[in-house]
Design a protein around this nucleic acid. Structure first.
Lengths: 345, 345
DNA sequence: AAGATAAATGTAATGGCTTACATTTAAGAT
DNA sequence: ATCTTAAATGTAAGCCATTACATTTATCTT
C-alpha cells in the first residue's frame, strides 16, 4: 500500500547533490538564480533519484498552484471536449495546468466538485452557464477564487463571462424557420431544469413564435437527455402526438441527428416532409445526409478567450469583464418549406 | 492577487466553533467519532466561513489523496471521452477522484504530465497504450505508483493492462476485406510514430495481406492526424496516386468518415465503387450514409474495468493482471466487393 | 455513589516545499 | 593585493490538515 512509499524528497535531492534545499528549489523555480554547474548537478540528482516535487507541499508553501479548475457537465459532449481542449492548450501558454471535473448535470455534484477544485488550490475556476445555487458563488467569493462563466452570455448576470447568448442565437435560427412559414413547430431539448443554456434555447423559440403571431404554448416540447437514440425516440413521440408537425427544432446537434435518423428510418424525406434543425455545429452535423442546418458556436475561440481572460484575472487581478461571442446560423439542407405550403415555392 | 487571499483554515473553523482542530478534522473524516451536537456546530462554522479543506495540506498529512490520474492523448477523440467518463463514474463508487491531462500525442508532454500527476499525489495512474520511454516506467516504479495501461492489450508487455488487442482486432476486419477479394488496398492511419495502437492496426493489415498471398509492401499508406478533413484529403491523395484502389481501410472512424465524405463528394458510390472501413464504432459511424463498417470497441466497459482494477491495485495492493476485452467487427454498409469482380457476386 | 470503562475531545508533532533574510563566494575596481 | 559590490548559496520559519497519544467527560456497574 501507499503508506510504504518512500518517495524521494527535496531534502534527499539536496543531500545527494550536496547543496541546500533552497538551491534545489531554485533550480526548479528560478533556474537563472543558480550557477550552471550546480544546476546540472542538481538535475542529475533529480534524474537518478526519480524525484517529483510534492505538489501539495509546494502549493502550501507557495500559496499558488498555477492550476485552473474547470467543471463541465460531461466530457462525452463534443462541444465541451472541443472548447476545453482549446482552453487547456491556451492555458499552457500562460504556464497554467488545467483540472477537469464532470458534474453530469447534477447541481449537487457540481457544488462538491467546485469545492474539491478550490481545495486542490485552483487559482481560478471555469464554470459552464450562470445558473447555480447562490451559496456556491458566496463560497467562491469567500475563497477569493476568480471565477469565469462560459458557454453563456447574459448581460444581466453579475459575473464575468465569455460566451454567446443562447437565447439570441436560437432566436436567429427560429426566425429562419418561421420565415419559411412553418406553423406547427416541435422542439426536442435537453432537460432544462438544471441547464440554463437549454432553457434559454427553448425560451427563444417561444419568443419568436410570439413575435410571429403564433401561440407559444402550441410548441410541442420533448425533454430528453443528450444522446442520438433519445433524439430518435423523441421524434417518434412527436410524430405520434402531433403528426401535423412540419419542423422539429432540436436543442443540440446530437438530438437532431437522432431525430434525422429516425425520420429517414420512417421513410420521411428531410426536409421535404419534415424539417429538422440542430444547435452547436459539431462534426456530426456535416457528415449526415442531408447536411444538418444548425447554429455554429465558436467553441475553440470560446475556450481560448476564456483561458486568456481567466489567466489575466488570476495573474494580474484583472477586472471582471463580459465578452460576447457571435454565433452564426448554418443554413444547410435539413430546413425547408413546410409540406402544406410547398406550392408557395 | 492570490497572495491577499485569506481563505479560512481548519484553525479558523475550530476557533469559530469553539473546539480543537482535531475535532473539526474528525467531523470531516470520521463523523461517527463526534457528538451530533458538536458536529452541527462545526458544520455551521464551516458553512458560514466558507471553508474548504486545503487539499495539499491534507495530502501531506494523510499521505493519501484518493486521486487517480489519467493521461490521454486528447479529449477531442470521442473514444477517449467515452471511456474516461465511464472510468470516472466507476472510480467515484470507490471514493476516488479523477484528474485528467492531455498529451496531444507528444511523448515529452506526456512524461511531464505523468510527473505532474504523481506530484499531485495521484495514488494511481492510468495510461493509454504501452509504448513510452522506459525512464517513465522507472520513475513510476521508483515512486511506487500503481499504473495501469489501457486501450491496448499485449501479452508480452510486463505491465498490467485492460484493453483489447489492436492488432488482432484490425486483423479480423482485414480478413473480411480480403475475403471479399480486394487486392488493391490502401490505408489511412493516424501517425504511427508515437501511437502504438495505430501502429498495431497498420501492422495487422500487413499481416493479413501476407497471409492472403498479397504483398505487404503494396499497401498504400497515408499517415495523417485525426480529423474529418484530413481523412478526406487522404482519400483524395490515394485516388490520385493509386486509382486502382478498391478499398480504403482507415485507422479510426473519424478518418473513415472524412474519406467517405470525400468519396461521395467525388461522385463515387460507396461501396460499389470503393469500400471504406473504420475503427472504434463511435456515434459518427451510425449516422453516415451509408452506415460505416467498422470495429466495435467496448469503450465504456474498458473504462469501467480499468477503474475497478486500478482502484483495487491502490486500495488492496492487488496483484497486477492483464484483462483482454473482445472487439467485434460491425459489418455495415461501406464494405462491399471490389468493382472489378462485381461479376463474381 | 464510587470506580471502571468507554466515548469525546484536546495537544502537538509531522509532512515537503518556498522564500525572506543571513551568509558566503566570486567578480570587478583600484 | 584589498576592498566593494553583486551573485550564489544556506538557514530556518511557515503553510495547513491529520493522527497518535493524552486528557477530560459521560455512561454504566454494582
Amino acid at each position: 500500500m501507499k503508506q510504504s512509499r518512500p518517495a524521494p524528497t527535496l531534502q534527499d535531492v539536496a543531500v545527494y547533490a550536496g547543496v541546500s534545499t533552497a538551491t534545489v528549489s531554485r533550480c526548479m523555480n528560478t533556474p537563472a538564480k543558480v550557477t550552471a554547474k550546480t544546476r546540472t548537478r542538481v538535475e542529475d540528482a533529480i534524474e537518478t533519484l526519480g524525484y517529483a516535487p510534492n505538489f501539495g507541499a509546494r502549493a502550501m508553501a507557495a500559496q499558488r498552484t498555477m492550476t485552473i479548475g474547470a467543471v463541465i457537465p460531461t466530457m462525452e459532449n463534443a462541444v465541451f471536449a472541443k472548447g476545453l481542449q482549446a482552453f487547456q492548450d491556451e492555458l499552457r501558454q500562460y504556464g497554467f495546468t488545467m483540472l477537469v471535473a464532470c458534474s453530469s448535470y447534477r447541481p449537487k455534484l457540481e457544488a462538491e466538485q467546485i469545492r474539491a477544485l478550490v481545495g486542490r488550490g485552483a487559482d481560478g475556476i471555469l464554470l459552464i452557464g450562470h445558473e447555480r445555487d447562490p451559496a456556491i458563488y458566496r463560497f467562491l467569493d469567500a475563497q477569493k477564487v476568480p471565477t469565469l462563466v462560459t458557454w453563456a452570455f447574459d448581460d444581466t448576470a453579475p459575473r464575468p463571462s465569455v460566451g454567446f447568448d443562447n437565447r439570441k442565437a436560437m432566436a436567429k435560427l427560429a426566425q429562419h424557420v418561421t420565415k419559411l412559414d412553418h406553423r406547427h413547430l416541435a422542439m426536442i431539448t435537453a432537460p432544462v431544469a438544471t441547464n440554463d443554456r437549454a432553457a434559454a434555447r427553448l425560451a427563444a423559440v417561444g419568443d419568436v413564435m410570439d413575435a410571429e403571431g403564433l401561440v407559444r404554448a402550441d410548441l410541442f416540447v420533448v425533454e430528453t437527455p443528450y444522446s442520438i437514440d433519445n433524439g430518435a425516440a423523441a421524434l417518434d413521440l412527436i410524430l405520434q402526438q402531433r403528426p401535423e408537425t412540419t419542423v422539429v427544432i432540436c436543442g443540440n446537434d446530437v438530438l437532431a441527428v437522432g431525430a434525422l435518423r429516425q425520420a429517414r428510418g420512417m421513410g420521411l424525406s428531410v426536409p421535404d416532409d419534415l424539417s429538422i434543425t440542430g444547435f452547436d455545429d459539431i462534426d456530426l452535423a456535416v457528415v449526415t445526409h442531408p447536411l444538418l442546418t444548425t447554429v455554429h458556436v465558436p467553441h475553440r475561440q470560446m475556450g481560448r478567450a476564456a483561458a486568456q481572460m481567466l489567466a489575466d484575472m488570476v495573474l494580474t487581478g484583472a477586472p471582471a469583464t463580459k465578452v460576447e461571442l457571435a454565433t452564426t446560423v448554418k443554413l444547410r439542407d435539413t430546413l425547408g418549406y413546410p409540406r402544406q405550403s410547398q406550392a408557395a415555392r
